[in-house]
Simulated scan of single mutants.
Amino acid sequence: MKITALTGISSTVIGELKMGKPRTIELQSANNVVAVASLEPGPDTHLFLTSVDLEDISPGDMGIIVKVLSVNITMKRMIDIIHPVYYEERERLSARVQVRYCGNSMVKSVSAGSLCHPTEVDVVMAAHYRAV
């Protein structure tokens, strides 16, 4: 199954999702925001979540498959003013995605995306683990 990957997700968050309850994750990493920006929530929309960093993801890495329940993209504007000399305006794009755990999975192959395109992985559902 080829699906979009979210990388660098905390092991704690992945463990919490494995308990079965839907959870909302706030994403601020540019590659993860791009990955969910074009998703339409629905019964056939899935993501692969892993704690492995984007640069390090490779075949054999473990993660989980989740179903996407909702997606919300927001722009936050922050202004810092120190009168009369300093004025700085910043914008931060972030995404909130609500997901529900489907199952454990392992990466079979990686299709690296560019800055504006998400990374896709071909995954297989893990039926069991083996000792290495």
Rank of each mutant, 00 (worst) to 15 (best):
L93P: 00
A5H: 03
D61F: 05
D122G: 02
L17M: 12
N32V: 02
S29P: 06
H83V: 06
V124R: 15
K2P: 14
R90M: 03
L69T: 10
G42R: 05
L49C: 02
G42T: 06
N32D: 00
I57G: 06
M125T: 14
Q28E: 10
T7I: 01
Y87G: 05
L6S: 00
I25N: 09
L93N: 08
A127S: 12
V68C: 01
S109D: 09
P22A: 01
E26C: 00
T119C: 05
L47S: 04
T74E: 13
T74R: 11
A37T: 10
P43K: 07
S94G: 01
S38I: 00
I73T: 10
V110R: 03
T74D: 09
I3W: 01
K2R: 14
N72H: 12
I81H: 12
D44V: 05
M62C: 13
C102R: 07
G113I: 03
N104K: 02
L54S: 13
K18P: 09
P118I: 06
G63I: 08
C116W: 15
S11M: 04
C116L: 13
S111N: 15
V85L: 07
V33W: 01
L69N: 12
L6W: 01
S58H: 14
V13L: 12
R96F: 13
G60E: 03
I64T: 04
T50I: 05
P59A: 13
E89W: 01
V110A: 00
V99P: 08
A30G: 06
T4V: 13
K21N: 14
S11P: 11
I79C: 03
L93C: 07
T119H: 03
E89Y: 02
D44F: 04
D44H: 05
T7Q: 06
I82L: 15
M19P: 04
A131E: 12
D61N: 12
C116G: 13
S94E: 08
Y101P: 12
E55S: 08
L49M: 00
L93T: 12
V13G: 00
S10V: 03
S51H: 08
T4W: 04
A37S: 14
V33C: 03
V123W: 04
D80T: 12
P41T: 10
T50H: 06
M1A: 15
